[in-house]
Structures are given as structure tokens and as C-alpha cells.
């Protein structure tokens, strides 16, 4: 197991290099000169511009620029912005916000998605099943922008003004974990819908298996057949989905963060792309890729725990 983990971590290095290089090239290829954008409306003195280009190594060939950057990353130096702020410092608080948001979303997704999915599977073909399926359609078809503002209005504003319940803050992170509930749900919306459907199919599939029939024939009560014999088997494919989704949730937080005014990495990414702050953009992506790889590793390890037929050595 330990060797497997080390091998997987080593395998992550080329993936990390490849993906960061790609994003580096993409940012490089964006139209517009970062030095000129830095000046905004004013035209920058050409001498100063040349000096800045030299200082930030913008005249070097792409591959050299990339090397300068990535060799720093490996010792924890994510470079600095044109304003002279350390990118690593810029990240510190923001990643925390985004991770909190994504993890809240993931927990909500797991609870609601698994719960509704299992419920629908057990009520297969009845009205409850149809209702759940209709709900998933609603979840996929309403864009985050709409669901975000609507829920913000209903839960953040109306709940307080109409009913006097002050539980969900309108925006910001002052209220601690409560601040992330509504945005977490909004962010998880589409994923919940997919997870519900996946869970429902998975459990229904499992319930048709021969070993379920065996469990019934052994005289096991229904609750035990479902909770012990079927549940674990049907969870196996779902864990993969949930793990992969953590990366998606973190990367997809831009709009949600904007609506709820959460000062997270999505916001930062948006601004930095606009300002051509290559160091920040590549830094964000690097960390996201890392999170993604890590989540996948955890999923694979969990897999081995859930399914004894899989063994890593």
C-alpha cells in the first residue's frame, strides 16, 4: 500500500508538469501585453516598459520562462505579481475559502445525492421515484446564476425579513460555516442531480445481483439486506464520482463566489486572467491540479477499502 501511494505520487509529477505547461502556454497566447495592461488607460513609458519586461523575464523564450516559474513552485515559491505581492501570500486565505466552499458543497452533495438516490431506488416506479427524478431535472436545468440569486433572496433575505429567522447570511464569510451552506448547495446543484441518478441506478443494479438473492434466502431481514449487503457494493462506483467532483467543484466556484461575495480562489482567478497575471493564473491551476490528483488518489485508496477484489502493491 505504502509503495503504491509513493508510485502514485511520483506519477503525479509528469501530469503536473504537463498541465501547468499547457496552462502556461495558454496564458502566454492570450492577446494583450501584461505590461501595457498594467498601465491601464495611461500609456507606459517605453523605457520603463522595457525595464519591466527585462525584470520579469518576459523577453525570455517561453520554455525558459516556464522553467524559471516551475522550478520555483517545487520549492514553494509561486513567484510574485507585478505589484510585488507574493503569489503564495495572495493564495493563503483565498484557497481556504474555496476549499471550505467546495468541501461544504461536497458534503451536501453526498448527503442529498446519496439520500435521494437511495430513496428513489427503494421507491422505484412509484410517485416518489418520479418526483425525485423530476427534481433532478430541475436541478440540472436551472443555471447557477439563477439558483444562486433566488436562494440568496429567499434564504438570505426573505427568511429574515418575513419570518425573523436569521440563520443564513446574505453574503461574505463572517458567519463561519453557516456562510457556506447556501453557496455550497448552489455550487453542488448540478452534481447533486447526477449523483442522485447515479446512486439510484447503482442501487437498483446491485439489488438485482445474485448475492442479494442469497442474502434474502439466508433469512436476513430486509433492512440488513439493504444496509449491509447492498449498500457497500452500490457505493463503489459513487465514490469515484464524488472524488472526481471535488476538483470540479473547486474549479467551478467562480460564479458562486461572485454571487455570495466569497473572497476565494475563483474570484482571484477571474481577476488575474483579466490582468494577465500569469504567475497567479498558473499558480491557481497548479494547486487545483494538485487537489485533483490528491482527491483521485484518495478515491483509489478508498476503492481498495470498499472492494477487496482490488489490491494495490
Amino acid at each position: 500500500m505504502g509503495r503504491y501511494v509513493i508510485r502514485r505520487l511520483l506519477q503525479a509529477i509528469p501530469v503536473l508538469l504537463g498541465s501547468t505547461f499547457l496552462i502556461f502556454c495558454t496564458v502566454y497566447a492570450l492577446p494583450g501585453d501584461p505590461v501595457m495592461i498594467l498601465g491601464g488607460e495611461r500609456r507606459i513609458d517605453p523605457v520603463l516598459a522595457a525595464q519591466l519586461r527585462e525584470q520579469y523575464g518576459l523577453n525570455d523564450p517561453l520554455i525558459v520562462q516556464y522553467w524559471n516559474y516551475i522550478s520555483g513552485v517545487f520549492v514553494g515559491d509561486f513567484g510574485e505579481t507585478f505589484q510585488g505581492v507574493q503569489v503564495a501570500d495572495l493564495f493563503a486565505g483565498k484557497f481556504q475559502v474555496t476549499i471550505q466552499l467546495a468541501v461544504t458543497a461536497l458534503i451536501i452533495e453526498a448527503l442529498v445525492g446519496l439520500g435521494l438516490g437511495l430513496y428513489a431506488a427503494l421507491r422505484r416506479g412509484r410517485w416518489q421515484d418520479h418526483a425525485v427524478l423530476a427534481l433532478t431535472l430541475l436541478l440540472v436545468s436551472v443555471p447557477t446564476l439563477v439558483s444562486g440569486f433566488v436562494l440568496q433572496l429567499v434564504l438570505g433575505v426573505k427568511l429574515k425579513t418575513e419570518l425573523g429567522i436569521d440563520f443564513f447570511p446574505i453574503s461574505g464569510t463572517e458567519a463561519g460555516w453557516r456562510s457556506f451552506l447556501v453557496p455550497g448547495f448552489v455550487l453542488a446543484g448540478t452534481s447533486i442531480a447526477y449523483l442522485v441518478r447515479l446512486t439510484r441506478t447503482s442501487l437498483m443494479e446491485t439489488l438485482r445481483a445474485d448475492y442479494i438473492r442469497t442474502a434474502v434466502a439466508k433469512g436476513m431481514p430486509r433492512s440488513r439486506v439493504l444496509g449491509r449487503h447492498a449498500l457497500r457494493n452500490s457505493l463503489i462506483p459513487l465514490v469515484t464520482y464524488l472524488g472526481a467532483d471535488l476538483g470540479t467543484l473547486m474549479g467551478g466556484a467562480v460564479i458562486t463566489e461572485a454571487i455570495f461575495n466569497l473572497n476565494g480562489i475563483g474570484q482571484q482567478l477571474f481577476q488575474s486572467v483579466a490582468r494577465r497575471e500569469n504567475a497567479v493564473v498558473v499558480g491557481v491551476v497548479t494547486v487545483l491540479v494538485l487537489v485533483y490528483l490528491l482527491a483521485n488518489l484518495i478515491v483509489d485508496l478508498l476503492y481498495a477499502v470498499l472492494d477487496p477484489r482490488i489490491r494495490y502493491e
Binding site: D210, Y211, R213, T214, A215, V216, K218, G219, H229, P308
Partner: peptide, 20 residues
């Protein structure tokens, strides 16, 4: 009655046993 007083064996033991 099931399992306790009337028991059953199935054709394909691999699929009839729970893999996990």
C-alpha cells in the same frame, strides 16, 4: 423459515456470494 429451516444453494457460487 428462510435460512433457518429451509435453505438454498445456487448454481453459480461466485455471483451468489457477496464479493465485499
Amino acid at each position: 423459515v428462510r435460512g433457518e429451516r429451509i435453505a438454498m444453494i445456487f448454481q453459480d457460487a461466485l455471483s451468489a456470494l457477496n464479493p465485499v
